[in-house]
Amino acid sequence: MTPYESLSIADIAIYPLILLALIFVLVRHGISKQSGFIYLATFCIIRIVGAGFGIAAGKNPRDITDFIWSAILGSIGIFSILGASLGLVKRVIDKTSTRVPRPLDERSEIETVLTYIPVIGLIVRAITRTGTAVSRRSRFIQLLQLPGTAGLILCIIGGVNQTSANVSDQKQGKTLLKAGILIFLAIYVCLVALAAKSATEFNRIPADEKWILVVVLAALPLLAVRLIWTLLAYFSDIQTFAIIGGSIVARILMATLEEFLIVIAFTVVGFMVPRYTYTDAYDTDATEMKTQEALGGTAIPEGNRTYQPSNTGR
């Protein structure tokens, strides 16, 4: 049994148990992309499937197709962790925002323009129709689903091309994979900026919600190491980080361990924090505004004021 096959067996032994725990978390918080926990469940499924390919590769080492797909699914897993992190940060932002939610059928100018672009327009309309963004930062997080989805598609297409017998297709596949990974890196930079901004509002976060931001901030360095390993694997010629024939120790220390710690931390915080709904964000926001008005002040910055949602059924 090769070290990579042993690692795949360990993944199949561990991640179904985490997935079972996440099912309870999803039942508690609801199956919604807004919560971030659905991305964790997706990550566990990706890891289980990828481990299956890893075991198959160990049984048939002459065929590298299974090994390549195991590595590709590993790259796609980054998208799920980024999505989970953004979902948790959005929850914190909605709790500290002083903006009243806009009607769901109103879009900004840039969103309106994007709706006319094929494929992207469908995604934008879906986001603005079902979204629950309370502030500009929340809406920005929702719009990050666009490049995130694009990166995911590029990685999948790149993976398919790399399994081709055509050398030209393999080269193109590697290029597409690199493009998808760079998109994930850009999303990570946005995540760091959003989390840092939320950290400056730490005192405004409800006591039972502060653990969410603490866990996300703690996960950022781990996710950075995971991204560095991916960049070295696909953008460098260092054999230690090679996808095929690379060091198993480097993979465990820079990828497997980081993913495991992040998923465990996010799952635990899912049991710790109370159930969150869109109404909670609206009620928190409206209560703060009424309190400020009762005190005779106008503490809400002019740039953060919006109109009250009507009760006409929109």
Rank of each mutant, 00 (worst) to 15 (best):
S75I: 09
P221F: 02
F241V: 08
I76M: 15
R137Y: 08
L154E: 03
S97C: 07
P3K: 06
V273Q: 06
R102M: 08
T240V: 09
V216T: 14
G270F: 05
L213P: 13
I262K: 10
R102W: 05
A56G: 09
S168I: 10
T279N: 09
I120H: 02
C190F: 05
N166A: 05
P118T: 00
R28M: 12
A186Q: 00
A57Q: 02
I93M: 06
F260Y: 13
A265E: 09
R136M: 08
A21R: 07
T312A: 11
I46Q: 15
I72P: 14
I81D: 04
T149L: 14
K210Q: 15
I187P: 01
G151V: 03
F37I: 11
P16H: 06
E302W: 02
G245N: 13
V225A: 12
A207T: 14
G50V: 07
L223T: 09
G158K: 02
P147E: 00
I76L: 15
F271C: 05
T240M: 06
M272Q: 14
V27F: 10
G296E: 04
D283H: 06
T42A: 15
Y307N: 10
S236K: 08
A265V: 11
N60W: 12
L40G: 09
P101N: 00
Q308T: 09
T240N: 05
T2W: 14
L295H: 07
